[in-house]
Design a protein around this nucleic acid. Structure first.
Length: 154
DNA sequence: GCCAACGTTGGC
DNA sequence: GCCAACGTTGGC
């Protein structure tokens, strides 16, 4: 089983919103590297660190899991969607997504600051690489455990 | 709201 | 295939 970190802007779709709906198609990813992770490497049951970005307190706020195989993102075909991609066609869809299911909300936010402070133990980690903008990225098992262990740390 | 960093686009 | 221009991300 692999682990991932997925970013979401809480004003767009927060961990509370995921808790409410239980399951959500992860639409709107328009970055090839992020798409490739979903298309080629994600498996049902993989664990996901749910991260709030572009907000007052960026950090990991919950746990989710991959709930489907990859399939075409329907918003790419919808002219009324902000994610509409006129260059994509149903016979050759450019953008794929997976469904994400709520597992639990963390007792507190594990902030980006705290995660940065663990850089030594975490090793190479896309989230804290300079200038990183990926919204879907792999997390190793030890990184996953290390980050979650911070939830109950002082 | 600012802006550094980065990905994508398109002219050549 | 290069690379300048442009748009977006996301921390601050």
């Amino acid at each position: 089983m692999a682990m991932w970190l997925m970013k979401s802007e809480p004003e767009e779709f927060s961990i509370e919103a995921l808790a409410k709906v239980a399951r959500e198609p992860w639409s709107g990813v328009r970055n090839y590297q992020a798409r490739n992770f979903m298309r080629d490497a994600m498996r049902k049951g993989d664990k996901v660190l749910f991260y709030h970005s572009n907000c007052a307190q960026p950090g990991v706020v919950g746990i989710a899991e991959v709930a489907s195989a990859a399939y075409p993102d329907p918003t790419q075909f919808d002219p009324d969607s902000e994610y509409y991609d006129p260059k994509s066609t149903p016979s050759a869809p450019r953008w794929l997504l997976v469904d994400i299911a709520f597992v639990r909300q963390l007792k507190r936010v594990i902030t980006l600051d705290e995660i940065r402070n663990q850089a030594g133990q975490l090793g190479d980690f896309a989230l804290i690489r300079r200038g990183n903008r990926l919204s879907v990225m792999p997390v190793s098992a030890s990184q996953y455990q290390h980050i979650l262990a911070l939830e109950h740390a002082a």
